[in-house]
Computed example of a mutant assay.
Amino acid sequence: MLRHTLRASAAALALLLPFAAACGGEAKAESSSDLSSVTLRVGATGWKQEEAILRFAHLDDTPYKVKWSLFQGGDQQLQAVRAGALDVASSSEIPPVFAAADGKPDFKVVAVQRATTLNQEVVVPKGSPATDIAGLKGKKVGYVQNTTAHYFLYELLKRAGLKWSDIDAKPLLPNDGLAALNGGGIDAFASYGTSIITAHRQGARTVGSGADILSGNFLWSARDSVLKSPAQRAATADLIARITKAYAYVRDGHEDGFAKVTAEATHQSVAQAKSDLVAAQNQRPTQARTVGDDTIASQQKVADAFTELGALKEHLDVKSFWTTELNTDLKKVL
């Protein structure tokens, strides 16, 4: 039924879009109903969870092609977008801030995906005497730069009465940070997702969490060239909607099946994978929403924190790289 509904929505969209394109001046030469020639290059972080969940929910039969590329962080995805190697990136609120800091972004945030903020933690290795963030004063603390880890580590330090300068902060990629944590190169590590799951499996303990610090807004960013193409815009909106519907399918009694998929990809037990999946969806069901003033204001708060930290040289007005251009297409297919 879910598949049928989506196909019906896609069919309706195909009927409507030529009329919208015909009103678009120069854009009318390209019909957005013709998606067969579109290839979207889309980024994923940690493991290709979005690709996997679409396949699991039988929603991967897109009328356009999707080329997924795996990255260790959303910051790398935004770098790839700016380099012309990706069309669409998924990230937290933080990477677009730094990608736009030079004042010449060639991308826009086009949609928001509400999602869990669990597994966003500061961890210490087995045997560490540290029991909280205050215990990290003077210690070597790894973090994934220009990501959620950078932000929640800064906020956790402030809550503990510490300054950024009170720790020896070491920017590291997730895999490098795990190796340094296990090898004694750092005393703690702020990271997210699969790297935190792996750290716990290796005996690490949590001393701080970003669960209640992060907004739960994860952003879809697209190259400006995507927004200029009615067909690519329609395909992007359709893909984002499919991911939302795939998560709804999992929540509708299919947690066991997707837990098996997750367990295989993340090298954990099926029981643990299901526990994490259920906890994540209970905390905040994964679903897309359109751009609004509140989502822009949420990222502005994050950008202001990085200005305060000194990571941004000057104030950044984030609304300069947001757009509502995808809102109409996305509302039609959600």
Rank of each mutant, 00 (worst) to 15 (best):
Q72C: 08
L326M: 15
N182Y: 03
K137P: 01
L136G: 01
P129E: 06
K313E: 13
S91A: 15
K319Q: 11
E308A: 09
T262L: 10
S221K: 11
S215L: 04
L330N: 09
G142L: 04
S221Q: 14
T116V: 13
Q79A: 15
A241C: 15
A237G: 13
D34W: 08
D304W: 05
L214Q: 07
I243Q: 15
Y151S: 03
R205S: 15
W164S: 05
A11E: 15
A188D: 02
I240S: 02
F258Q: 01
G74P: 10
A21D: 15
I240D: 08
A80R: 10
G208L: 03
D176A: 14
S209C: 09
W164A: 09
K126L: 06
S9E: 13
A57R: 05
Q268S: 12
G177F: 02
S320W: 01
R201S: 12
T324Y: 13
K163V: 03
S229P: 04
A248W: 11
L54W: 10
R289K: 14
K104P: 00
Q300A: 05
K140M: 02
Q76M: 15
S69L: 11
S69R: 14
T307W: 11
L156V: 01
S165M: 03
I94L: 04
Q299K: 08
P171T: 10
L172R: 07
A235C: 04
L181C: 04
K301C: 00
V278H: 07
P285M: 07
S128T: 06
F98D: 09
Y151D: 08
A241D: 07
Q113N: 14
P125T: 06
K260A: 15
V122D: 02
P285L: 08
L162R: 01
Q113R: 15
P63Y: 11
T236W: 05
V124K: 01
T45A: 12
K65N: 12
L178V: 03
G138F: 02
R223V: 02
H267V: 10
A80H: 11
F152T: 05
V112W: 06
S191F: 05
D329I: 01
